[in-house]
Design a protein around this nucleic acid. Sequence first.
DNA 1: CTAGGAGCTTGAGTCGGCTCTAGGTCAAGC
DNA 2: GCTTGACCTAGAGCCGACTCAAGCTCCTAG
Lengths: 153, 153
Amino acid sequence: MDGDTVSLSIGQVAERTGLSVHALRFYEQEGVFVEPVRRGPGGRRVYSQDDVDWLTVCIILRASGMPLPALRRYADLVREGAGNEEERLAVLREHQERVTGQIGRLTQCLDLIGFKVGVYEDLLDEAQRAVEQDRPRPSGGGPAPASTPGTSA
Amino acid sequence: MDGDTVSLSIGQVAERTGLSVHALRFYEQEGVFVEPVRRGPGGRRVYSQDDVDWLTVCIILRASGMPLPALRRYADLVREGAGNEEERLAVLREHQERVTGQIGRLTQCLDLIGFKVGVYEDLLDEAQRAVEQDRPRPSGGGPAPASTPGTSA
DNA sequence: CTAGGAGCTTGAGTCGGCTCTAGGTCAAGC
DNA sequence: GCTTGACCTAGAGCCGACTCAAGCTCCTAG
């Protein structure tokens, strides 16, 4: 790999990961990196391609809701080296389940939202049709909207 | 409906919605309710079945990541009464897209996680097979795990 | 030689969404 | 009369994950 041949400043890493320089320093402090971040002249951080690759994974895990402590734990295990693959797997599996569950819950919510969107679309469609036919909407006898917040709002 | 016939204390509502009494008071303060919560003797809150139904919707919207301000806006529109259905629809559609996007992103993340889980499973499978055959694992020549954090860790 | 820009550290501030505390009212039961 | 328990208000505190500010060191260009 070319992990050794590239060396990036914090600004460059921020640019290509989308993380802020603040977040990068924060992550370092939180022990998210596998290797301690190297330092160049003047104490400046020097990142390798491997660091960026690792960050890419981290970003994905974070984006899917893995809490920082779990991420740190995972980094700890990787840092320890070979021999703890079961534990790494456990961390990943736990997160996998979290995400699967979350997707399931969101999908359920989406059903309800879709249903309500449909209700309002129908409502507006009808109103629109009434207008187009130059037939004033019945204002007293029709189905009264918003009378039962739980189902119609 | 039986919205008028039931009247519940804050504790009962907490019990049947799963929200805490704190959260209920907080939501009220944040303007999440459509009707101002009625008060009984001694200034105690009295909730109707409609309130509980509305809360059920709120819980689903919150669970799918709708921010409180959006929820309040939606409640505001419903409170205003008929005539603003387009706006309600807009709020719902916006949220619908948020959720769809979120599910998409989570699904992508899940792909990567599944991939990594698979890698570790294979790794451990192999190790297990080696042990069962009473054949000591090669410790120097095999594929070295964790050498490229981005893909193997 | 000085101004700008990127980086450094430490520590404080922010935001969303609750959660908890303090101090008080009220009704029921012993 | 006293305790208990559910409720009230106002306001403080907490958690996670950043984000920002102050005050410093460098290096480079004009």
